[in-house]
Write a protein that binds this DNA or RNA. Structure first.
Lengths: 210, 210
DNA sequence: ATGGTTCGGTAACAAATGTTACTGTAGTGC
DNA sequence: GCACTACAGTAACATTTGTTACCGAACCAT
């Protein structure tokens, strides 16, 4: 755990803080598909991502879903942050996109560090900033792009976070993430295949050139 | 200015901070329609809103626009915050929705206060949280609602921030905010009128019952 | 192999939204 | 008054997206 922290957060946090994290944080490994945060639940600890990727989804009251963004190493979940600091309910759902390792920090420490460590404060501010930007980029996609371009962006982002240009996804799963229907995704993927941008196989999509 | 600060921020900030704000902040009055922040510009001071309303828009590279949310008394602009703290470029555009009064805080002070005042720190965290929630609510609207419901929400929100159930808006302006076309808005407004939800006049819309 | 299930391709259709074009009317300046 | 402009109403049409239904292939368990 110390290695992972040092590697991903060492440039950012002062040694004393790294040491504290090591002593109070708990290391956790999760498998692809694990649900880390359920919408509407309360959260008592905050994850620092050491490696792997987490996807953050918005879920409305009828259960409709929409992918907000991915978190990667060095990231933390701003919603969790603000839930912890403000003691609000979770507004989102988090699923492990790949196997991942995390360090979980208890809430009390977070608040304490905010006072004591400048680097922690900056990290928290920076995380908020990043998430706000990501949220706004998501808004851009939905508001300004048509479904075909949103799909392209999705394939691109996903192959980036998994570091793999073969996506092991069903069309239905993509449809959930983009909040549309399976038929629409199949239709658009087929178009992309005829353009030579992807190669389609059962349960997987090979990204050729986006 | 001290009155306004005391009234809107007094519960939140300790007296010493209020005093500091008074001494280093500059009072500013803006008129409806004034452009406070232009997309792509750098920002050197942060506004605390004393009264009035500011609308925050996203603008893409082609000039397409979309309303993100309104700011009201007691609010500040989280994007400005993070731009100041992180020295990033503005990603948004801000327009005075009504006449408004603001107190502008220089960047340096903001950073200093973050270290010195717990209440300021909490204010900043809280602002980030609020804006993130608002951004996500905007995502909800675009992703999960159809244009007719988005229009209803728009009319509702707008009549709330202006404290007036008569909106002095052209259809074209609404179309810009919702990123659609004038014809679509006219069509939907007409439907709302036949349902008795609004009354349409030239250059104004009376909200009857949403 | 058999039967059941999941996945993807496709067609046909429905609904929502976007686009273009034309109208009349209210306001504005002269 | 007259010309001009901005605004809103409407129709006709195009495009995009969503929905339903059906088929066949791949996969799975027995």
């Amino acid at each position: 755990m110390i290695d992972g922290l040092q590697q991903n957060y060492g440039d950012f946090f002062e040694p004393a803080l790294i040491k504290e994290i090591t002593s109070v944080g708990t290391f956790r490994e999760v498998s692809e598909g694990d649900e880390l945060i359920r919408a509407g639940s309360y959260i008592k600890s905050m994850p620092l991502i050491i490696n792997g990727a987490i996807k953050i989804l918005r879920q409305d009251t009828e259960g409709d879903e929409l992918l907000l963004y991915f978190l990667e190493r060095g990231d933390t979940c701003a919603m969790t942050l603000s839930c912890c600091l403000g003691h609000h309910k979770s507004e989102i759902k988090a699923i492990a996109e790949t196997d991942a390792s995390l360090v979980m920090i208890p809430v009390e420490k977070m608040e304490e560090w905010t006072t004591r460590y400048k680097s922690w404060r900056n990290f928290v501010f920076d995380s908020y900033h990043k998430r706000l930007i990501e949220a706004i980029e998501t808004i851009d996609s939905i508001a300004f792009l048509k479904m075909d371009d949103r799909l392209l962006k999705y394939l691109h982002d996903k192959s980036k976070v998994t570091s793999d240009n073969v996506l092991k996804n069903t069309h239905q799963e993509i449809a959930y993430d983009l909040h549309t229907s399976r038929v629409v995704i199949s239709r658009l993927l087929k178009k992309l295949e005829t353009k030579g941008k992807v190669k389609l196989n059962r349960n997987s999509i090979e990204v050729i050139d986006l």
